[in-house]
Design a binder for these strands. Structure first.
Length: 247
DNA sequence: GTTGAGCGTT
């Protein structure tokens, strides 16, 4: 069972075949691509511990070369680590090397599985679209079964997978609300009067979609594209006519 | 210039 045969020969250092995709057929239309840029530099590391942090990966993986980035995706709704991560190298050769050496290694008591990342990173926007009609085709964006707990409520992840000094502190859609004429002070004042018993749970709107929130438009009745605003001057029925007394 | 809701999570 555990006979993970080790390849008798060392890593071929990548011979343009790039097992991109973790040994899967890359692209049939790949002609001559002697470009190193074509080689994958991102590794997908599986079977990570759930409390594994990027720093834990940086050390072992950084031995093979400079890392460009490390990212550990988490469930957007629960914030739980998904157990895998991406490690991007600067040099594809280093990535290949790291993959070969790190695949099967044990980190924090877990045997890692390292493969090449298939697709490029996905953007939040893409993910959003995906949920709309992709992985979960249900109208109810039912999160993956493996991570859906009622007790988790919908707490937006205010976690930071990245230990970098970057400020990824606004995961969910940030909608510009609040009146633009109200000063912070006024706003607060007004808020207190308006919602005296409102808990301070105004932190931020969790993932949109509230189970069955079909109305996503905050103010659909305000159509800016429709008729332009009426004349400011109600008296001036004829703007270009009796506008000037003279002439 | 980028992008953290990245595919392989039980």
């Amino acid at each position: 069972m555990r006979g993970r045969s080790y390849s008798p020969s060392p890593p071929p250092r990548y011979s343009r075949r790039g097992g991109g995709g973790g040994g899967r057929s890359p692209s049939p239309r790949r002609r001559y691509a002697p470009r190193e840029s074509d080689l994958p530099t991102s590794l997908l590391v599986r079977n990570l511990r759930h409390d594994c942090r990027p720093e834990d990966l940086r050390r072992p993986f950084g031995q093979f070369g400079p890392l460009k980035d490390i990212y550990l995706p988490k469930d957007y709704y629960t914030g739980q680590p998904r157990g895998f991560g991406f490690i991007q190298f600067v040099d594809p050769a280093d990535a290949a090397d790291a993959k070969y050496h790190m695949d099967g290694q044990v980190l924090l008591g877990r045997e890692l599985t390292v493969v090449f990342a298939e697709e490029n990173r996905k953007k939040p926007t893409e993910m959003r679209v995906r949920e709309r009609s992709g992985r979960y085709s249900d109208r109810r964006r039912t999160p993956p079964r493996y991570s859906r707990s009622p007790r988790y409520s919908r707490s937006p992840p205010r976690h930071r997978t990245h230990s970098r000094s970057r400020d990824y502190d606004s995961p969910p859609p940030k909608r510009r609300e609040y009146s633009r004429s109200l000063s912070p002070e006024d706003r607060r004042h007004s808020r207190e009067r308006s919602h005296p018993s409102r808990e301070r749970s105004y932190s931020r709107s969790p993932p949109p979609n509230n189970g069955d929130a079909r109305s996503r438009s905050p103010s659909p009745e305000k159509g800016p594209v429709l008729s332009r605003s009426p004349s400011p001057n109600r008296d001036a029925r004829e703007p270009a006519r009796s506008r000037s007394p003279s002439q």
